[in-house]
Design a protein around this nucleic acid. Structure first.
Length: 1013
RNA sequence: AAGCCUGUAGCCCAACGGAAGAGGCAAUAGUCUUAGAAACUAUUUAGUGUGAGUUCAAAUCUCACCGGGCUUACCA
């Protein structure tokens, strides 16, 4: 006996004898088809196909313990629809899914829950997978990747080694083997390959010098060139997480994950020399189809600027003749500026507190003051510096000499100049730069005006369009033009060079953590030696306890045996692990050839699948993941392992689904102090007022306690607690679980049970017997009790309804709030569709009659609309096109297979289960009997035919001077002249013309007619 | 503070130079039901945030302002 599957009660009629279910029983249908798809491996994709290829990729998830909420699958559904659509259109579609399982959050989660990351990750993946499966995605799970599996990270380690063994040849603008560099050094020193690290003590060397260097020095120099290198640097150190973080993992001076404080610290770290790729990462943006905002974010992150580095002589006094001795002959102050044209407006210099010349520049009389200032700066965390912007600084006592007019320029120290950017020193031009201006005003430094009336003395003006004044040899020149002139002059005089600068830093590539790829590196007397590639993967050893190692090292340092086995003779393994973005930088390639044990991905596979045609994911990866994976792709291209240097041809960012939070408003009759102290002991049950009462109370104002209480007494005459109230009143706004609110009406019974009965004794002030909650749109989050679980919705309405409703909410790229209420409408649509095939009482109603013109017109209108909308990612309007179609077919009482079958194929990408079911029924081949060849997945997408929708005439709106006055039915192929004749004969038009001659008659075919008088 | 996106019936959204409404939710009425729910049928609702401009014609293009979102925030 069949049970009632549907939550909406007695729905099913059972035809006795055939045991045929006449109502839309989505739960049974979806389960059956999902099993059938799985058993028949219908989503398995071959690398060998005569069809054209298409690659649709989702950003693979980090499997968090919290599970999915309705916001997560949005992008997956969109890509799934598109992948299915492309398959119907005859493409061999690669649409895989996997897990970004390594990384800090996984480890943090594991530690907090006392479970080993391998175990918790495994469990989270399992949960994740079961949630995904319910939605009916067409992933080829045989290609699943998991970044934490040795079979996968073997190749992450392998690519790292290739990076380690390569350098960026600036002449050929691509990565090349480090051996080539070595050969060049032996032949000609580093004349053709300047050291990328300009801070390095050795700048240039000849072949002879190179040969005389010790092995260690040679290795150290090579390290300055490697694309994956180890060096000391200022890193973002997060004490709470016990690790360094990449720049994009630090937000506002705290860690992106967890919000822990981050400080700058000098540590030995691995880096990726991504800065060498800065220009190509910028240029590549022109060849890809990303949104403008995405390109802009990446461009800003790379932060390319051009200008000059100018070197200034230093003096310990402002007087040219007297004590004009150079501070130290070799020391010069080098500043970076994008505006060399303002060189005569430089009124002071500012260097960062961390600048290496600070000690040299302090004169005796300023020593005490400077030291006090440095101490103050040190006491301030990164966070404080960012949060409160105070103008602070101190004069060093020293001066720089303007190379053009010899003017002595005082050198200051201030924290507004960052050590990490440019040279850590600036030339300050207060008339042109607002920060410099404020600094000058604050410390009473006289301001030189070089831009005449463009400067008003009130604020700086950063214009480039002023005519220069007080500027020696560039007087009278337009600023824009002077930039080039000054750079040339500087280079001529040998006091500076043209310079391009980037905000982007080399990417910190090591983490003092356990849950990541171990580095295939062994340290032998201070030199890192790569493991033989045959030894890969270097497996991550098991650890029971994940405590940080000594000296800020990661947990692996605690494993003595592993770090330095006896056979190593004192050498130690690298104990850092790679960051989360290592594995995700190349995963799109592994899907193409997931089981390859000899290569990360065969050239044959990567040539066949090529670039990802469509990549879908959130904006949050704009600068992290996307830049790193673009760099890795360029690198793999450079060394000839793949045939393209951009991974993603087209990128679509799905918008965020926001939560719609619900609030209840509690009131207390007590004073704030006693509540804060915890002394308050309610002598009555928790009391709640509805949203408009709360709003009214807010309107009255917190201070008007008397009025507020009087108001309450008036609206709740029967509430004894309120009537007895005398003391002060406090209101509290509390999030309430959206799942126990129907629209805005609180389900009081559920509320009393909520949170283990915390509000079991709650009392309410009701309006018409209802408690109305407040509503606010916020980020969807567990802590706000506004998350909605897809599992519940799939259970209640089915996967097809859920998929379509997610799409129906609005454009994929837009952020929008979730509102479960509307899902009923989509569900009704599917039921209505079902009724085109089956009648509740009569059973099968579809037939094989010949379709009428009107029916064919409805079908072909829909084909055109759905095809267009799907192609341009307008899924919301696509869903609505289906609704219109079904409404119209219902009105026409059309139950014809000739119409319904193509309609099902159109619908299959959106609602695959119901489409399969009905398609199988039309084909008389129920899947229960295992007739796999009738699957709708490989049906041919219906062909739109113009002839069915073609009209011969149209009723045109006729406007006089833009205002519609009448309508005229005119043949579609009418010429301008014919139209003019018809229009001018029309009585309404004649009336409105009032005898005047029309100036012009505008006739837009198939649109409208406008008569201009 | 800047850049990008966005603002259409009570709500979510269509229309993207050519008659503002396709669709859904909600609301109201009816059919069916012992009743409720569900289902079905029908009906109602805006002149496009504000102000200017371009055009024969503007929700659509331009500019300014106001509100919402996202991103980056001392980058010399």
């Amino acid at each position: 006996m069949l049970k009632n599957y549907c939550s909406t009660k007695n729905q099913f009629k059972i035809i006795t004898g055939g045991l045929e279910i006449m109502e839309y029983n989505f739960r049974e249908i979806e389960k059956r088809w999902q099993e059938w798809w799985k058993a028949n491996k219908v989503y398995k994709v071959s690398n060998d196909s005569p069809k054209p290829k298409y690659y649709v990729l989702d950003m693979f998830p980090y499997p968090s313990g919290a599970g999915l909420h309705v916001g997560h699958p949005l992008g997956y559904i969109a890509s799934d629809i598109y992948a299915r659509f492309k398959r119907l259109k005859g493409f061999n579609v690669l649409h895989p899914m996997g897990y970004d399982a390594f990384g800090l959050p996984a480890e943090q989660y594991a530690i907090e829950h006392g479970i080993h990351p391998a175990v918790s990750t495994e469990a989270n993946i399992k949960n994740f997978r079961s949630q995904l499966d319910k939605i009916g995605f067409c992933y080829d799970w045989d290609r699943e990747v998991n970044t934490s599996k040795p079979g996968y990270y073997k190749w992450t380690q392998w690519i790292f080694l290739q990076l380690f063994k390569s350098f960026y040849n600036r002449q050929t603008k691509k990565a090349e083997p480090i051996n080539k560099l070595l050969a060049a050094f032996e032949k000609e020193g580093n004349a053709s390959h300047p050291i990328p690290n300009t801070q390095y003590p050795i700048i240039s060397f000849t072949a002879e010098e190179w040969k005389k260097f010790t092995e260690a020095t040679q290795q150290d120099i090579l390290m300055q060139y490697r694309l994956a290198y180890c060096g000391y640097g200022e890193v973002n150190w997060c004490e709470a997480l016990g690790t360094v973080l990449a720049n994009d993992e630090v937000v506002n001076g705290v860690s992106e994950r967890g919000g822990h404080p981050v400080v700058k610290k000098k540590l030995r770290q691995w880096y990726l020399r991504i800065t060498e790729y800065a220009d190509r990462l910028l240029e590549g943006l022109e060849k890809v189809d990303f949104s403008e905002s995405m390109k802009e974010m990446q461009t800003n992150w790379i932060g390319k600027s051009s200008g000059a580095e100018i070197s200034f002589e230093l003096r310990a006094s402002s007087h040219e003749n007297k004590s004009s001795q150079l501070i130290a002959n070799s020391s010069r102050l080098i500043v970076y500026t994008t505006r060399p044209d303002t060189i005569f407006g430089v009124d002071f210099m500012v260097i960062a507190p961390e600048h290496e010349l600070v000690k040299e520049l302090i004169t005796d009389e300023h020593k005490a003051e400077v030291e006090k200032y440095l101490e103050y700066v040190n006491s301030r965390s990164e966070r404080e510096r960012m949060a409160e912007k105070k103008i602070t600084g101190v004069f060093t006592g020293s001066y720089a000499k303007n190379p053009f007019n010899g003017r002595a320029i005082p050198i200051w120290i201030s924290e507004y100049v960052l050590a990490g950017y440019g040279t850590g020193a600036i030339m300050a031009v207060p008339c042109g730069d607002q920060r410099d201006f404020l600094f000058a005003k604050h410390f009473n430094i006289p301001i030189t005006n070089i831009i005449g009336s463009h400067y008003n003395g009130e604020e700086a003006n950063p214009t480039k369009d002023a005519i220069l004044e007080n500027s020696d040899f560039i007087n009278g020149m337009l600023m824009k033009d002077a930039i080039e002139v000054v750079i040339k002059k500087i280079e001529e005089k040998g006091i500076g060079v043209r310079k391009v600068n980037y905000k982007m830093r080399d990417a910190a590539f090591s983490r003092q953590r356990y849950w990541g790829e171990p580095f295939p590196i062994v340290w032998k007397s201070g030199t890192p030696v790569p493991l033989d590639e045959k030894e890969l993967p270097l497996q991550l050893p098991h650890m029971d306890e994940l405590k940080p190692g000594p000296d800020g090292e990661g947990p692996l340092a605690n494993l003595g045996e592993w770090v330095s086995p006896p056979a190593f003779g004192g050498s130690r393994r690298e104990v850092n692990t790679m960051p989360g973005y290592a594995g995700s930088s190349w995963y799109f390639l592994r899907y193409m050839d997931p089981d390859n044990e000899k290569e990360f991905c065969s050239r044959k596979a990567s040539d066949y699948w090529g670039q990802v045609d469509l990549y879908i994911g959130g904006t949050e990866h704009a600068v992290g993941h996307l830049l790193y994976s673009r760099m890795w792709t360029k690198f793999l291209f450079d060394i000839g392992l793949i045939g393209y240097d951009e991974p993603y041809k087209r990128l679509v960012n799905q918008g965020m689904i926001q939560g719609s939070s619900r609030f209840v408003y509690r009131i207390f009759f007590a004073d704030t102090l006693s509540i804060l102290k915890g002394e308050f002991n309610s002598n009555h049950n928790p009391l709640f007022v509805p949203v408009n009462v709360y709003q009214k109370l807010t309107e009255i104002g917190v201070s008007n306690t008397k009025e507020r209480i009087e108001y309450l007494k008036k609206i709740a005459p029967n509430n004894s607690v309120i009537q007895a109230a005398t003391s002060s009143l406090i209101t509290a706004k509390l999030h309430v679980d959206v799942n126990i609110v129907d629209g805005v009406e609180l389900n009081i019974e559920e509320f009393r049970k909520w949170r283990n009965g915390e509000y079991a004794d709650a009392e309410f002030v009701l309006e018409d017997g209802k408690y109305i909650c407040g509503v606010e749109i916020e980020k969807m989050s567990k802590s706000k009790f506004n998350t909605v679980n897809p599992d519940d919705l799939v259970y209640k309405y089915g996967a097809d309804t859920f998929r379509m409703y997610e799409m129906f909410l609005g454009p994929v790229e837009m952020s929008k709030p979730w509102d479960t209420k509307g899902i009923e409408g989509v569900h009704r649509f599917l039921k209505k569709l079902w009724r085109l095939f089956y009648d509740e009482l009569k059973g099968k109603v579809w037939n094989e009659e010949k379709a009428t013109d009107a029916e064919l017109k409805v079908l072909h209108k829909t084909i055109r609309k759905v095809e267009e909308d799907t192609e341009r990612f307008s899924f919301n309007t696509g869903v609505s096109a289906f609704m219109i179609c079904v409404n119209e077919l219902t009105d026409l009482k059309c139950h014809k297979k000739e119409i319904l079958e193509p309609l099902l194929i159109l619908l299959a990408p959106y609602a695959p289960h119901i489409a399969e079911e009905l398609y199988a029924e039309l084909r008389k081949a129920p899947p229960k009997k295992g007739l796999g060849e009738v699957s709708i997945l490989d049906a041919a997408f219906p062909k739109f035919e113009e002839k069915y929708v073609k009209e011969t005439s149209k009723t045109y709106p006729v406007a006089i001077n833009g205002k519609t006055r009448t309508e005229l039915s005119i043949a579609l192929d009418a010429t301008q002249q014919q139209v003019e004749e018809i229009v001018l004969k029309d009585p309404t038009v004649i009336k409105w013309l009032e005898g005047k001659q029309p100036k012009k008659i505008i006739y837009v075919k198939n649109k409208m007619i406008n008569v201009v008088v």
